[in-house]
Amino acid sequence: MDLLDLMKSSIRAPGRLVNLLTIDELKGIDVDTSGATIGALATLAEIADHPDLARMFPALALAAGHAATPQVRNVATIGGNILQRPRCWYFRMAQYPCLKKGGDTCFAMDGENKYHAIFENSLCAMVHPSNTAVALLALDAVVRTAGSGEIPIRKFFVTPDQDILRESALAEGELVTQLFIPATGARSHYLEFRERQSFDWALVSAAAAAELEGQTLNNARVVLGSVAPIPWRIDLGEIAATDEALDRAADEAVRGATPLAKNKYKVQLARTAIRRSLRELARATE
């Protein structure tokens, strides 16, 4: 769907397309005690509505359910979702020869950068557009490919510094076949802030995961969306599930932010997203 969008906007003009929709092996969702195996062609609607995923990996089901609209979720695949190209308007307009299109300028740096990155933005200020990527990173998913085999999701997304022309570590012609999420018993949650209630891209999103032991969150991590060219993971280790400790962690996590002229508001949103998503994990105690 994103490719069709890029073709309509004259950003891509592929000479030949390969239809993956005919490959049944890429479809379906299997959940067992070891974890969830999700075919690259599983739709966002299937993921959002899957009762086992909602129970074991709520962050992913919530992220998939927040994406776009029913019309899009019924068709859009998880593989396509994590491989979407940036929504940056300079990238999406053919008349701007930006870095991502082989040009030599990031027009967002001194341009309209309200929706752009506040971390890792010195070269290109795009934000990664995928909601589900944020959740998958918090859940330590593994990307399975026809090619190199398995790529831990932490190594799947690449920054502009690593490769300005692409957002993933996939090699040319390499195909995502499945995502695997290991069952670790971690709690997880996803939330996002946006300007409109329906069909909007997140201003900032957050997926949090941790194991709760008494009043302590172990192996706590939060992944922020729409703040950096990759899903932005913050590892907090062991942290007390108190408002004070979570607030301190949130403050610390955004200290290194480098907002641009028009997106300073995202720093505050990021702090709030971190606090609220972690609090939700702690609140889930009876």
Partner: peptide
């Protein structure tokens, strides 16, 4: 869906 899916596609 088959766990062998990945292999089949490349084959």
């Amino acid at each position: 869906m088959a766990a062998a899916g990945a292999g089949r596609v490349s084959a």
